[in-house]
Every structure is written in structure tokens, then in C-alpha cells.
Write a protein that binds this DNA or RNA. Structure first.
Lengths: 143, 143
DNA sequence: TCGTTAACTTGACTCGTTCAAGAAAATGGG
DNA sequence: CCCATTTTCTTGAACGAGTCAAGTTAACGA
């Protein structure tokens, strides 16, 4: 994979790739931990650098729901979407609602040339009990 | 508006509300600047606090595209979406693609109870020329 | 094998945001 | 209208994800 992207093959990069494949939607900190099970001495910087080049090369995808730190996944190329739990932050994959990427067309593109439509579904995961907040009850009543 | 949400009416909050109305999609720093034109002595903390309570009360909406700092807008209740320029970060409103909020239904909700579908369209705004690299320079610069 | 160049290590640093303690001011009862 | 209560604001420090910079190491091509 790395050679195919014209990237040097280094042990930190291999370990990061493996970590992302083995821990979908993990954040950088978790990935550093996973990488260090294989290479105990890697620096956090090496992981940050590797994630940046892998993301730029398109070998991993970076996602960052509002209020979350950056997370990474290896499922790429299909522009699938995500459902995020408001309570515990859990993330699950959701197939594209309509079809090929970009799967949606804006009703009015405002003059922008759009190349991607990113969808995030917000809700509660099966393991989190319903919450009672001012915002959520307002949404239940009006939204 | 504030009384309707059972919030105390304070000058910082009024100024923050006005600033958000007058500067849609502005980030916190810009809003602090706008608020200080009216109240030169407000602390940044008062603005952060006001934005949090106004957001919680549903009087303003917080948006945060990947790689951006938090931004705020006063158009609420219609779950409209946004198109973001990869180059300069400009944001424009886009009406909901299908209908009422939530305007989209996940193909498979993975057991989550979904209450909102958030859509972000990525592309280039009319003022930004096509870029030399596929990678997003704005994301690199700001994210 | 060697030299060049990219990648990694180390450690300091930035910046948006939050925390904490005390001062100020907004509402409600007298 | 004024005071008491409670929230909100000020001040200043702290936090944490992520970045920068200088020097060392290691991948790859000749």
C-alpha cells in the first residue's frame, strides 16, 4: 500500500496502518497506544506525521465530529457516513444514503464547486439511556 | 429571547446575541471582537460562557467543520446545512436537501436512535481558484 | 556500500478552550 | 425601593490536542 502511494516504507508507518485497520474510529492517543504495542519506542510525533501522510495519500480517512478529537479509519473510497452517539461518543459506519460519492447534491450550491458531501447522524447508541436536557426536550417538542 | 429561555438578561449576553446575528458563521475570536465594539471591557470568558448557554438554550447554533474552530450562527430551527470552502474556509448556508429536520434517514441506523442529520458540503468557493494539490491546504493550515 | 533525502526523536511551544476563586450584578421578596 | 440570594462576570492560570524546530537516524537509489 505504501509503495503504491510512493511513500517510504518505515516501521512506524506500517504499525500505524495496522493500528488504524485494527481500531476503526480510534483517536490519535489510542492509536499511539496500539502502535506502541508493536513498537514501544515510537514518538507521538511519528504517529502524528504518519497519520498526516497516510491521510494525504488517501490510505486512511480522518474524521472529526464536532466536539471530538481527530479519529481515523481505514474504510476509504466509498464516502460512507457515520452515526455518532451524543452521550458516549461511539461511532458506527453507515452506508451512503443515496449512491456513489458524492452522494448528495446541494439544493443550491451557492456558487461553490462541491466535491464531497459529508453526513453525520447524531443520536444515542443502543448502550446509552435517553437523556433529559433542555436542548433535547426542545428538539423533541419542536424539531 | 433570553427571558423566553428563562435566562438572565445581561449586557454580555445581549451583545453576544447581537454579534452572532450580525456575523453569521463567525468564530469565537471574531465574536469577542464584535462584542467589544459594544462592550469594550467584556472578558473572553464571558463570551465563551454566553455562547455556551445560548447554544444550550437553542438560541444560537454551534457549528464546527473538521479542522476549524467553533463557529456560531443565529439561523436555528430549520436544520439547514453548510458548504465549506476547502481553500479559504468560507461557509455558506444551504437549505435542507430533502425536507423537514431531520431531513435524512440513515440506510441502517445501527441501533442508534437518530435525532439529527448534519450535512457538510466540501468544495471551493467562487473566490478561490482551483488548487494545485488534491490535499486541502486550508485543512493543513487550520487543522 | 555510500550519499542523499526523507523520516524519526526530543522537547518546547501554540492556541482554542476550560477551570477556579472571588467580585459584580440581575432577579424576587419584603 | 432595597436587600438577600443566586447567577454571572472578571481575572488569571491551566489544560490538551496538535504543531514547530533542530538534530539524528534510517530508507532507498546509484
Amino acid at each position: 500500500m505504501l509503495r503504491g502511494a510512493a511513500l517510504r516504507v518505515t516501521r512506524p508507518r506500517l504499525a500505524v496502518l495496522r493500528a488504524v485497520h485494527g481500531h476503526p474510529h480510534a483517536d490519535t492517543d489510542a492509536l499511539i497506544g496500539a502502535v506502541r504495542e508493536e513498537l514501544p519506542k515510537v514518538s507521538h510525533q511519528a504517529v502524528y506525521d504518519s497519520l498526516r501522510v497516510l491521510t494525504t495519500a488517501g490510505l486512511v480517512r480522518r474524521i472529526q465530529p464536532s466536539g471530538s478529537v481527530a479519529r481515523y479509519e481505514s474504510r476509504i473510497g466509498d464516502n460512507h457516513h457515520h452515526v455518532v452517539c451524543r452521550s458516549c461518543g461511539a461511532i458506527a459506519d453507515v452506508d451512503c444514503a443515496v449512491g456513489e460519492a458524492p452522494c448528495l447534491t446541494a439544493s443550491d450550491d451557492r456558487g461553490f464547486s462541491i466535491d464531497e458531501a459529508e453526513v453525520v447522524y447524531w443520536g444515542l447508541c443502543p448502550d446509552c439511556p435517553p437523556e433529559r436536557t433542555a436542548a433535547s426536550s426542545w428538539k423533541e417538542a419542536h424539531g
